[in-house]
Computed example of a mutant assay.
Amino acid sequence: MFSRLREDIANIMARDPAARTALEVVWCYPGFHAIVMHRWAAFCWQNEFKLVGRFISLIARILTGIEIHPAATIGRRVFIDHGFGVVIGETADVGDDCTIYQGVTLGGTSLGKGIKRHPTLARGVIVGAGAKILGSFTVGEGAKVGSNAVVVKAVPAGATAVGNPARIVQKEINNAKEEAAARMFAAYGVTPNGDDPLSKALHGLIDNAAAQEHQIACIVALLKSAGIACDGLPLLDKFDPDQLNRLVE
């Protein structure tokens, strides 16, 4: 038990630059308190003292603002940062080395009993503040869920999910050093080059339209130089791709 506590404290010290001492973590980190109390509740639940387990989880919720069902599976070195408003459902499975920020919900979308209704977070997943992961599917190892994303389908390993409903951005890591840094710390699930894929698509369409307008202008100029009248073409407002790109950002 004490080795697990030391491991949790060391993990928080490594991941949170605001953590100054082990004593500060023990006394002042609600995520640490919630994980410890969840272990008590889970022990009671697994040994058929289910009401006691639920009561301990209720006390933990009152004290920390973090609600973890005693039947949920929480791995080693899980860091719940800030944590207020976090809800982890009954059949949720949180893997080792995951990071969960405040306002996150690992929720179910089914009323069935005795079935897995909540998501599984594989090893090293980072879930940003306010994100909702809803349903029985897996968020792959090393994946990231951006703040306020609403995830309703599986996320591949190493990818980033952003938006509502969440869209998948495949990871773009250039070298092992950057990959290790991103795996260690990606605040609130925000990573470099993690643009919304819808935004990228819109920028691509705008750039393509600008290129087509330039080609049309060249064609019209050539027709006029050849003596072919183009006066019948309707005049349109000048296309400003820079302005549209700024609106999409």
Rank of each mutant, 00 (worst) to 15 (best):
Ala210Asp: 15
His69Ile: 01
Gly53Pro: 07
Leu106Gly: 00
Thr105Ser: 14
Ala71Gly: 12
Ala186Phe: 03
Ala19Thr: 05
Arg167Lys: 15
Val36Tyr: 03
Lys224Phe: 01
Arg20Met: 10
Asp93Arg: 09
Ile133Gln: 02
Gly95Val: 04
Ala34Asn: 11
Pro156Leu: 12
Ala187Thr: 09
Phe185Cys: 02
Val94Ile: 14
Leu106Ala: 05
Ile173Glu: 14
Leu134Asp: 00
Gly163Gln: 10
Val104Phe: 07
Asp237Glu: 14
Ile228His: 10
Asp96Cys: 05
Gly53Met: 05
Gly83Tyr: 04
Asn174Ser: 12
Ser57Lys: 03
Thr105Phe: 02
Val125Arg: 10
Val52Lys: 00
Arg77Ala: 05
Arg4Cys: 01
Arg117Ala: 01
Val104Ser: 09
Ile219Ala: 14
Leu233Tyr: 04
Asn193Phe: 12
Gly158Pro: 05
Asn174Pro: 03
Ile62Asn: 12
Val127Trp: 09
Ile206His: 12
Lys116Met: 01
Arg123Cys: 10
Asn148Pro: 06
Lys113Cys: 06
Thr120Ser: 11
Ala159Ser: 15
Pro156Tyr: 10
Leu58His: 15
Ala19Leu: 09
Asp196Phe: 11
Glu178Asn: 08
Gly204Ser: 13
Glu48Thr: 11
Ile9Met: 06
Gly194Trp: 07
Asn148Leu: 12
Gly142Pro: 02
Gly158Thr: 04
